[in-house]
Amino acid sequence: MMDLTAGQWVVHAVTHPAEGFEDMRWKKAGSLKITAVILLLWFAGAILHGRMYGFQFFAVPEKVFNIVPFLVQTVVIFLAWVIGNWSVCTLLDGEGNMRNIAVYSAYALVPYVVSLYAEVLLSHILIRDEGIFLQIISVTGTLWTAVLLFSAIRSVHQYTAFKTVLAVLLTIAAMLIMLFLLVLALSLLQNVWLFVYSVFTELMYRLKV
């Protein structure tokens, strides 16, 4: 039973919100390769969504293209999620390891990523009056992913529903703390660099004069 290929596992997990991830856990399925592919597709989809949306809906106002925001909004936020969830759930008796958290979360993202592409594609075919369809796709994809993500976290850590909600909230808090620490570290590093630089300049000046 449940002898599925790696690809079929993705479909199974996405189409069975209630027990798809339980099955995956039971069969020890899920591949890092596919996780990477989903992330890459998400990244590309976010760029397409931001830059190649149908002109009748959204005129891209920027003259220059900056890839960093897209990178941060997809891959970096995913990594922060995985690390945050892992650090929270090891403290909350979660059974998932980091690999499984990453794999399950990525699988849960599939509906959202698909909705990104579907939206971009349809935005070139529809007109403004029919924009409600794009909204439906967007909302459906997001909600579906939210449900899947909840199910994924519950399965990977073998939590109750209440504990899952708590874990998700704590994970978001952990992500914010990470952001805060990152900003702090960056500004401190900048200060250190400035200090070293001014000492160096001063020394060079003294040597010259």
Binding site: F55, Q56, F57, F58, A59, I127, R128, D129
Partner: peptide
């Protein structure tokens, strides 16, 4: 419409 950056005009023409 694209040159003028007018989404609205583009939408009318595209329809």
């Amino acid at each position: 419409a694209k040159l003028a950056d007018s989404s609205y005009r583009y939408d009318r023409a595209f329809a």
